[in-house]
Nucleic acid binder design. Structure first.
Lengths: 345, 345
DNA sequence: TTGAAAGCGATACCAC
DNA sequence: GTGGTATCGCTTTCAA
């Protein structure tokens, strides 16, 4: 009785309604159906009404995959992001997705646990025919070359490249660190500890170098550096390392991100019984949510994440439309937040 | 001199290498090229070597879009997630992406700011021909019907539906809350405040109801409820509301998530000068990172997020392979964490 | 404005 | 094992 032939097809036996089905049902040509779903097409009012009714009745949705194949545009953009970045700045992903979807572009997500996985990943990105790519991860010069060779528009998020013409949006890490150092030195701090981020993080290195440079310029001699990995635990451990290295607790600790600053404060207060900011000043960088919690009230430089993602999205979409645009770097100043975690005068 | 014809095509003028190019360059048929890139295909060693060499030389990558069109499988899964969920549990997204990509499936991201946006969004999901969908957002019965009608496999993440056969993975909220209440009542607390999540959150409602039910069973009469929205600020505000409503500070406050519990603790300590846990016990739910920070050391129920995402991924992939599998609910117990934010004996 | 027909770049099936 | 050919569902000329 029942026709089972459809089930014999080896691929998805879920029934798909195509533009042909709609055309037949509406008694028009398939091209007409296609036109009705294309924004600026020339279709008569009557035709559109008829087609839309038929589409409604059959539950038709145009197949984006087929559209991509012929039009050469997938309306998808790749977002390549490392695990750490997602964990510390979850809002980036949400905002990117939100803003791009407003422009009719979807986010295809590529996360990397270890930055080494990136070569396979780039192959994947290219296979999926994304129209563009936003990269919040470290790429080697060769990898960047490879992307450019394929002609895929891309924008770096929060990494800059001094010697390369490239699209990037970032926060001025150096400027921010210099401000923090200025304030701390002005307030009389003389013995400094720095808790850096992981060595392979360009952002962390810029922050650390920015602070070191300014300290040197101001003639501050007593400076020790401990390496962290952006985590709470490494902030706590960093303080102990610094104390061991310097013989005693420094006057101020500059952390490469807020979560480490928080770890550092907690270690000072709860492990060492040291009062922050009375006996020790701690500053961070980035301005994540918990920085504002009243237990910490961090002095930090808040990155304008919203504006940065907005910029990244508009840059990538512009370049999808017009691949020949000149490379552009957009560098935002951070917002200086004078919290209660540091004595500033 | 130069041939500009390629540039006249209205779509991406970026040159694409196709399997035909590779075939010509290797002197074999196009089908042969295709087979070489298909895992279990029967190709001679010699042929494979030749094709791979040609592909390498031309920089060929198979076009996933074209593959999807004919094979009926896009190797993409939609992840529908609300803004709040991403912010509080960023690891969900990373883990989903990681685990799915290990299985050759990419995540197409759909975020919603307001849950009302969801109808347009479902249309979008369907257009992109994803193979399956993981939903960490609230859907109405009608919306679920619509998905089922389309035959798209889907799994709910951390929402359950008592009266519906549906795929879902979640954490047993009720069980967890009952445990918290048991411990608090056993320790002698008698006056309870509850800070709930937003009214439209099913998860929050389950937690709040679970606590209320157990309190009733144990004969606890003095209970007040304040509504929060999962944010730090609303946790702080909730405590003030409870105090106003009850005439004084309760013995214990049960918060529908950890961030509100943290807000509540900070408000108690820094705004009201109340000691936690000596004068007030506070418990949360979910076990986010900051719950372990030594300033808070929350008593909470940690959701096994890793196991839950693992389960969600395997459930969805199984159902992509075999759409006729029976609906299944996988309910994980939370991990009871006895932190220092509550007096438990 | 509408319809017919030619692709987009793969896979699947069929002979050989 | 290999090569030809139909096909996936749409957009896009091109005539009518």
């Amino acid at each position: 009785m029942t026709d089972n032939s459809a089930n014999n097809r080896n691929h998805a036996n879920r029934q798909r309604v195509t533009s042909y089905d709609v055309a037949r049902h509406a008694g028009v040509s398939q091209s007409a159906v296609s036109r009705c779903f294309k924004p600026g097409a020339s279709v008569s009012k009557k035709m559109r009404a008829r087609v839309m009714k038929a589409a409604e009745e059959l539950g038709y949705q145009p197949n984006a995959i087929a559209r991509s194949l012929i039009s050469g545009r997938s309306n998808m953009a790749a977002v390549v992001i490392s695990q750490k970045t997602t964990l510390y700045y979850p809002e980036i992903l949400v905002e990117l997705s939100q803003r791009m979807s407003e422009q009719g572009v979807r986010v295809l997500l590529f996360t990397l646990e270890h930055e080494s996985d990136i070569d396979d990943l780039l192959d994947q990105v290219l296979q999926y025919q994304v129209d563009g790519m936003i990269v919040a991860a470290r790429l080697s010069a060769q990898q960047i070359d490879a992307i450019e060779r394929r002609g895929l528009p891309f924008v770096f998020y929060n990494r800059s490249f001094r010697d390369r013409q490239i699209n990037a949006v970032c926060c001025d890490q150096t400027e921010g660190e210099r401000w923090l150092v200025n304030r701390l030195v002005n307030a009389g701090h003389r013995r400094f500890g720095i808790i850096s981020g992981p060595e392979d993080s360009a952002v962390s290195m810029e922050r650390t170098q920015g602070a070191l440079e300014r300290l040197r310029e101001l003639g501050v001699k007593q400076v020790a550096v401990a390496e962290g990995d952006y985590s709470y635990e490494s902030g706590a451990a960093g303080l102990l390392t610094l104390r061991a290295e310097m013989g005693r607790i420094p006057d101020a600790v500059i952390c490469a991100n807020d979560v480490m600053a928080i770890g550092c404060i907690d270690a000072a207060r709860h492990q060492l019984g040291i009062s922050v900011p009375a006996e020790l000043s701690v500053v961070g960088f980035d301005g994540v949510g918990p920085a504002r919690w009243s237990s910490y009230d961090l002095t930090t430089v808040r990155q304008p994440v919203g504006r940065m993602t907005e910029a990244a999205v508009s840059m990538i979409l512009e370049r999808v439309e017009n691949p020949d645009l000149q490379p552009e770097k957009r560098i935002f100043s951070g917002l200086m937040v004078e919290g209660g975690s540091a004595r500033l005068d």
